[in-house]
Design a binder for these strands. Structure first.
Lengths: 356, 356
DNA sequence: TTGTATGCGTTATCAC
DNA sequence: GTGATAACGCATACAA
């Protein structure tokens, strides 16, 4: 590639017999410039197809108007949506996004963080990887004076801006719903407990059982049933127990719930009458399985927008907040075929009793 | 936010009583530096938590090791996967990615292009938006001496590097498959014909009909049936025709095919016996509908990797190729329940006769 | 209203 | 081997 020399403000200045500073002022619309010379500069700039060199401008100004985003997987629905949401809000303010994916690897996550620091991004938005075991690299971000915003999977001990879901409450409601549908032996597929979100979801599950005075059966709690395959395997085990569960809450993901459903179908176990299934995330496919899967919507795009807005709000304030703001978005239980066991009328009744 | 002053090479130089140039050489490992001083520099740099300012470095060097990617929608499976593929390959070479989404809007696409030019990215990777009506902005990229790579949806008339699917061939095979399954009246749901990919898919459809000497019925060709809703609406119309089709090829997307399936289910039309359905893209859900949907896999992640590698290959060459390289990835027909009408044995036979 | 001078942090090209 | 110096392109304090 022969990279041609680009047009600079000096080229424009020369053409007009003014200095670069005048051109700079005219183009960036700050400081006094004679309106006619300003128009002239704009005209020549357009003619020469001038493009401002953001690198130089940023170096000079010490800010990049760039936000770095680190997610475990770009092509996971939830994260793709959050990114889309962030992009939507930042685009309007002429901010750029640099996207990195950690591939769920702590080491790669550290490399991503360093890259973003080197790039002098103004803000780093991160959802930590599943195998993260310490947070020195995030502390480093703070030490460098870069705004840090954690979302969804967060290191709770770090005092940073956070945008999270109320996972505990959502789980609680999901399990209550199952109980209200008459399920009594509810199993939990849980995710890596070093991640806050999975701890919270478990805690919501326990809370619901406690509320209805149902004893916890440890055999019903399956660790690390994260993927469709693991969900399926866990289900096979659960269903072969002497006292098998009558409902499974796949708190890890809808993929896991899908694994449950497929095993149930294979074993000719009727869903929802014999087995209730609830997933997490409201992946698109949950609507079209048969039966459709009850799940929890996380408002991922809105979460992205909330992140961006949180950043802009924080920027407007002169100094950092003493206690960093935490925004909690309430997820919503989406009740579908896989858990509606009681007659619809009866069900409606329960709902209306509950809500107000 | 109080952005603290960062550590620079001068700070390190001062500590060691050497000059910045020595430090620079030591850190970037080029030019002669005494091994002991080099180690010393590295040590102090680590101690002070020095981070190179990529902005300054890039400005000086005139390259950014950054690739800009513009897609219509970040959170569409296909694009998210392509991005993940690009990221995977570029990460290994320490390249950064700046992601933009055009939201299918030509005007926003232009703004994205300009942003990336301003950022002095080394390469712009783009899949054009649905409503793009001219390509001056892309020509502009070339004029600025920035490498341009188009993928999937491309402006064919622009001589740039391209990574595409062989849409025509894939469509051809899909329709041939339908015909071999005994479907005779095959409808086509087509997308915006200003996009190359939809033109090609239509052409593959026509080619298959021609091969089997089936006359084209214009009533069977539905324009702009892109989304699930539009696919459903089109299906209702098609099925109410006096001479209704017995198969529908939703060349636009699997979402459209899903719309077809849902309408068929509602109308109690049996799939695949009464109606065959074929989609496009191999979205995750096509596997779990009932029946599962026959579709075409585009190897999206591989496509992303191919894009990155194409760029690196091109960079290694001293000059741009005379005729820009075009990489065509052969998509794969995934035959599933929605089109398997003949007995499996018979079907196998046809297949084996065909292939070799 | 415009010009002059300087610096952002790094790297490349000299000279020593 | 190391140091001095200029340059990347732009923005701004200050002088005119």
């Amino acid at each position: 590639m022969n990279r041609k020399k680009r047009v600079t403000i000096y080229d424009i200045a020369q053409k007009l017999n003014v200095t670069a500073s005048t051109v700079s002022r005219a183009l960036s619309n700050n400081g006094y410039v004679n309106e006619t010379t300003r128009q002239l500069v704009l005209k020549i700039a357009a003619e020469l197809n001038y493009k401002r060199n953001t690198l130089a401008s940023n170096l000079r100004k010490g800010e990049t108007k760039t936000i770095g985003v680190i997610v475990p997987r770009i092509n996971q629905n939830f994260f793709a949506n959050v990114i889309a949401g962030i992009e939507d809000s930042t685009y309007q303010k002429d901010y750029n996004l640099i996207i990195c994916q950690s591939d769920e690897l702590h080491e790669k996550e550290i490399k991503c963080v360093n890259t973003l620091i080197n790039q002098h991004v103004d803000c780093i938005v991160i959802s930590v990887s599943a195998d993260s075991y310490n947070y020195d690299h995030l502390q480093n971000v703070i030490d460098q004076g870069i705004q840090l915003i954690q979302f969804d999977r967060v290191a709770e001990e770090l005092e940073t801006l956070k945008v999270i879901n109320d996972n505990e409450q959502a789980s609680f409601e999901a399990v209550c719903h199952l109980i209200e549908q008459g399920y009594k032996k509810i199993a939990l597929l849980e995710g890596p407990q070093n991640l806050n979100i999975f701890r919270q979801r478990k805690s919501g599950y326990l809370k619901a059982l406690r509320k209805f005075k149902i004893k916890v059966n440890n055999a019903y709690v399956v660790e690390n049933a994260w993927t469709k395959e693991l969900g399926a395997a866990a289900t096979k085990k659960l269903l072969s127990l002497p006292d098998a569960p009558d409902a499974i809450f796949a708190s890890t993901s809808d993929f896991s719930a899908l694994g449950v459903l497929e095993v149930a179908n294979d074993l000719h176990i009727k869903v929802p009458s014999q087995l209730g299934i609830c997933g997490y995330s409201n992946e698109a496919f949950t609507e079209i399985t048969s039966p459709s899967i009850t799940t929890i919507d996380q408002f991922s795009v809105d979460m992205g927008k909330a992140i961006a807005n949180l950043y802009f709000d924080e920027m407007e304030k002169a100094e950092a907040s003493v206690t960093p703001k935490i925004i909690s978005i309430k997820p919503k239980l989406i009740v579908r075929g896989s858990t509606i066991r009681r007659g619809l009328e009866e069900n409606q009744e329960i709902k209306s009793q509950e809500s107000r």
